[in-house]
Amino acid sequence: MKILVFIKQVPDTEDVKLDPRTGNLQREGVKSILNPLDANAIECAMQLKARYGATVVAISMGPPQADAVLKKALALGCDESCLLSDRAFGGADTLATSYTLAKAAEKIGDYDLLLFGRHATDGDTAQTGPATAAWLGIPQITLATSLDVRDGWVVCTREIEDRIETVRAKLPTAVTVCDTINEPEYPTPKNIMKALKKPRYVWNAADLGADTRLTGIPGSPSSTKTVFEPPKGNTDTRYFEGSPAEIAVQFVDMLEREHAL
C-alpha cells in the first residue's frame, strides 16, 4: 500500500498578532510548527504501516524552510518526503494549492490512500483535502474519527452533528482525519537518525508538469482584501455584589426577569 500524507507548516497561532500600524500580519518572531492536526494524519499512516505494511510519503507545499516539517515527518516514521517549492506556487488559495498537491500525487503515482489533517490552524478552511480528491477524481471521506483498510476499501467512522456514521470508500481515496482519531507519537532519537538517510525530493512547477496559470496567485480566484482584529466587546455589564447568598437572590431575580427560569 502506498500512502501519501499531506502536511503544512503553519505559524504557531498563539504568537499571531497584527502590526497595529500597517494592519498586516507580524511575521517576525513567530514560530513555525507542523500543523497540529497533520500529526494525527501521520500517526494514522504509521498505524496502517505497522498493521499492513506501507510506503508512506510526506508531501508539503511551501517555501524552502517548510522542509522543517517534512524532516519531522521523516523522524516520525514516514519513508520519503517531497517538498513542492516554487515562486510560482506562492499566494495560492485552496483551489491552486489543491491543484499543486494533486499534480504531486500524479507524479508519485500508484497511490492508495491520501491522508490530510481535518484543517490547518492558520486558514481553518478544511478545503484542501476534498479539493485535492476532486482534482484527482477520487472519493473522499471527511472528518474521520477512526480508519481501517479492508479488502481494498477504507472504512471510517465520522462523528458528525448528532450522529455517528460508518462509511466506506474504494481505494484510492482521500481521508481527512479529526484530532480524536489517535494520539500522535513523538520522534525517537533512533528515528531522527534514520530520517537523515531517507530520500527527500524537492520539486518545482516544471518537475510536476504543473500549468503555472493554475498555481499560485494566477490560479487563485479568491484573495484576502483586508485583515483586522475582531472588535472588542464594550457591553455595559450589570454586576451583582454582596455575600454569596445576596448575589444568589439578585442572580435568580435576574433569571426570572429574563425568563430564563
Binding site: T13, V16, D124, P221, S223, K225, V227
Partner: peptide
C-alpha cells in the same frame, strides 16, 4: 472569515470568477 484560530478576521473577495 476568522483565521489563526479566530485571532484575526479576514475579508475575502472573489473578483473575477
Amino acid at each position: 472569515t476568522p483565521a489563526y484560530g479566530g485571532k484575526i478576521l479576514a475579508h475575502i473577495v472573489i473578483l473575477e470568477k
